[in-house]
């Protein structure tokens, strides 16, 4: 690696005249630097995606070992599938819920921890600790705690509240899955917000206070715009994570009760891997890909509109 870079640097220094201009040199170094990543994306992201699109035009029964071209049949089935609207609603609910709860809690924790208090390092460590716990272990444990006779309800009982049967009724099941995911990962966003908050110049607050701005106004008018780049970063990471939630659903609710927590990834996993409809599973993957693409473009656009400090 080091050798390659030095060699590249040497060629770059030696050839500075004629055709070999600084611009061309920059271009070449740029391409070399991104080459492994781009090649990797082509091989391990775009080639599989192309294959998925190809599969989606086929009826593929793994057990019978049949693979036949069916054209747009799977896509017609997608439009007619009564589960798809429910699944998309659950997905939207989950992603929106997760992003809102995660970001607001992360911001709240960050604001609390940025107060001058002794022992914030201890709290910071505690809030961050679930991030490093294995996801599978974490969900298995929460599966226990959220049972009707589990730890969560025991804690609630101790303060005189009768807890619901968390994972067995629609609304609380969705809320539980969101909460488990938030507690697992909010520490990451909290830390990013903490750093961003430290980066906001104190003079801005002082000036605003002199102008008679209240705490809320200062937060809305100064803090939020100043940390908007971090809000973008965290929302990208969180949205991406929310579309990939899988182990949590598989361990906690298996998509139930009813289909209330069957999000798109889980549904496509069911169709492809459990029901052996690989062709239809691939079609659902294509749908997911379109959603993802739209979100990526949307976030990229928003960045220009909304983020205060983009270099």
């Amino acid at each position: 690696m080091a050798l390659g870079l030095r060699a590249a640097a040497r060629t770059a220094r030696e050839g500075r005249t004629g055709w070999w201009t600084a611009t061309r040199r920059d271009h070449l170094v740029g391409y070399l630097f991104v080459a492994p990543q781009v090649a990797g994306s082509l091989l391990f992201v775009f080639l599989p995606l192309a294959l998925v699109l190809w599969y989606s035009l086929h009826e593929w029964n793994v057990l019978a070992d049949t693979f036949g071209f069916v054209g747009a049949d799977n896509y017609r089935h997608l439009l007619a599938d009564p589960n798809v609207p429910k699944v998309l609603t659950a997905t939207a609910l989950f992603s929106a819920g997760l992003v809102v709860v995660n970001l607001s809690l992360a911001l709240l924790l960050a604001v609390l921890l940025s107060q001058r208090l002794r022992g914030t390092v201890v709290f910071r460590t505690l809030f961050f600790s679930p991030v490093v716990v294995s996801l599978v272990a974490w969900t298995i444990v929460w599966g226990f705690l959220l049972q009707r006779d589990g730890g969560v309800n025991a804690l609630l009982q101790a303060v005189g509240v009768e807890g619901p049967n968390w994972l067995r009724t629609g609304p609380t099941a969705m809320a539980s899955v969101i909460a488990v995911q938030v507690v697992k990962n909010v520490g990451l966003n909290m830390v990013l917000f903490l750093a961003a908050l430290q980066g906001v110049p104190k003079e801005l607050y002082e000036a605003a206070t002199l102008d008679g701005a209240g705490a809320w106004t200062r937060f809305a008018r100064i803090t939020l715009p100043m940390i908007s780049p971090t809000v973008l970063l965290t929302s990208i990471i969180t949205v991406a994570g929310s579309l990939q939630v899988f182990a949590q659903i598989a361990v906690l609710t298996q998509g139930g009760p009813g289909t209330s927590t069957t999000v798109l990834v889980y549904y496509l996993y069911q169709q492809a891997f459990q029901f052996h409809h690989f062709g239809y599973g691939a079609t659902l993957s294509a749908l997911l890909f379109v959603i993802v693409l739209a979100l990526t473009v949307l976030q990229w656009r928003l960045r220009r509109r909304w983020v205060f400090l983009e270099s």
Partner: peptide, 20 residues
């Protein structure tokens, strides 16, 4: 190119596991 690789950020592994 950046936008292109960014797509990978949002692709769940369940989507590509069979072709991979």
């Amino acid at each position: 190119l950046f936008l292109m690789i960014l797509v990978g950020l949002l692709i769940p592994s369940e989507v590509t596991i069979v072709p991979l």
